[in-house]
């Protein structure tokens, strides 16, 4: 194996595009190195992106907030501007692993690893985030939900890498929230997770909403029916019941010892309700 640590994005693209054999981007390594050591993958070249300064920058502009692909989730949790604008995205990123893992893991790695239970992915989908991708043919942007195509698979082409995750500008009276269910409180993989991002008007009517679920299908999914149930209503019992019903209906989960199909389907509805409630309260909603 060859280890490369380029200092610029064009150099990284060049290395990825020209590498012979199996080539992998290395961000925090909390998935990649585990898989290498477990013998699941044997890369010929590993391209470490952490020496590229731009990849560590969190930048706020009129277009929203851009998070460099090598930014650790721990660093996100220390960024007050980001936390204030996107509390749900940050709480999802901060749920990944222990402090040791937080110091290394990235949201871009979480997205590109393409696990159906990846914690930051539902929150990013609900946020309407995009990934900025750079490759031999230049730059392109993709909604986050289009990056993973199935477990362990992404739509990235040879030579391409994610350089940043872009969150839209935060509207007034608007907030997000993420909740997951795990048997343990720390260091566990989501059995079900739910993210809600919503905007309300002065009369507490929801004017915009995005809802996403994790760990209930081959990849994180958006739930348009739950969004429809929220938009145009305030957050009362009836609205919440409709959200829960729509989320349960959208589930196609696996059945395993950590959660049966029935259980995951039911809990998805409950978590979505609670996430909607949390986002609503953060947005300043009053019953």
């Amino acid at each position: 194996m060859r280890y490369e640590a380029p200092l610029t994005t064009p150099e990284a693209v060049e290395l990825l595009a020209s590498a012979k054999g199996r080539v992998h981007v290395l961000a925090g390594g909390t998935d990649l190195i585990v898989r290498m050591k477990g013998g699941f993958i044997e890369p010929d070249v590993v391209v470490d992106i952490k020496r590229i300064k731009d990849m560590h920058v969190i930048r706020k502009s009129a277009a929203g907030i851009s998070i460099g692909a090598a930014t650790s989730c721990g660093a996100m949790g220390k960024h007050s501007v980001l936390k204030k604008a996107w509390p749900g995205v940050v709480e999802a990123a901060n749920l990944i692993g222990s402090d040791q893992v937080q110091g290394r893991c990235t949201m871009a790695g979480n997205l590109c690893n393409a696990s159906p239970a990846a914690d930051s992915v539902p929150a990013l989908i609900a946020a309407g985030a995009q990934v900025l991708i750079v490759g031999p043919r230049g730059e392109r942007r993709l909604p986050v939900e289009k990056l993973a195509t199935g477990p362990g698979k992404t739509s990235l082409k040879k030579g391409e890498l994610v350089t940043a995750i872009e969150l839209p500008p935060r509207k007034v009276r608007s907030a997000d929230a993420y909740l997951r269910f795990t048997p343990r409180t720390e260091m566990d993989i989501a059995v079900v997770s739910a993210a809600v991002n919503l905007t309300i008007d002065r009369k507490n009517v929801i004017t915009d909403a995005r809802v996403a679920l994790g760990a209930v299908a081959i990849k994180a999914i958006r739930v348009p029916a739950a969004e429809k149930a929220l938009i145009g209503n305030t957050l009362n019992e009836e609205t919440l019941a409709a959200v829960a019903k729509a989320c349960s209906a959208a589930c196609k989960p696996i059945d395993d010892k950590r959660g049966t199909v029935e259980y995951r389907t039911r809990v998805a509805g409950v978590l979505a309700k609670r996430a909607a409630q949390a986002a609503w309260t953060r947005a300043g909603g009053k019953a």
Binding site: L26, G29, I33, V46, K50, Q100, R104
Partner: peptide, 12 residues
């Protein structure tokens, strides 16, 4: 920063 050295490459 606290890290697990089993998930860091020596060359890093």
């Amino acid at each position: 920063t606290l890290v697990c050295s089993c998930l860091v490459l020596g060359m890093e």
